[in-house]
Simulated assay, not measured.
Amino acid sequence: KLVGTDKARIVSEIFRLLDDKDAYSAMARAHNPFGDGTAAKQIAEIVARAHR
């Protein structure tokens, strides 16, 4: 969730996630448009297979 650069808004959103179990749960299930965090591993495996 993008909340901007306002310090008060950032802190407010952090505490909302820490205090509101439903908000935290919804954020935890949200789709990540940036992938699953395994791109480097996948690329390394592809390169390793190509050089066998």
Results as ranks from 00 to 15, higher is better:
F34L: 06
R52A: 12
S25C: 03
A26Q: 10
A28R: 13
G4Y: 02
R9T: 15
V3H: 02
L17V: 04
A50L: 07
E45C: 01
I46K: 14
L2W: 15
A26D: 10
R29L: 08
K7H: 09
A39E: 14
D19V: 00
V3F: 06
I43D: 00
L18Y: 09
A48D: 15
M27Y: 12
H51S: 13
V47D: 04
A44E: 15
R49N: 13
D36H: 11
R16M: 10
K7Y: 09
I14N: 09
I10T: 07
D36P: 14
R52Q: 13
R52P: 07
A44G: 13
A26E: 13
A40W: 01
K41N: 13
G4F: 04
D19I: 01
G37N: 03
R9C: 04
A50Q: 05
I10G: 01
I10Q: 02
A48E: 15
E45T: 06
V47E: 06
V47W: 05
A30K: 12
N32P: 00
A50P: 01
D20N: 15
Y24M: 09
R16W: 01
I43V: 11
V3W: 04
Y24D: 02
D6G: 07
K1E: 10
V47H: 02
K7W: 09
A40S: 11
A23C: 06
A26T: 14
V3K: 00
A39K: 02
H31K: 05
G35D: 02
I14V: 15
Q42N: 10
V3C: 10
Q42M: 04
A40Y: 03
K1S: 07
K21H: 12
M27L: 09
K41F: 10
E45I: 00
I10S: 00
L18E: 15
V11N: 06
I10E: 00
R52L: 14
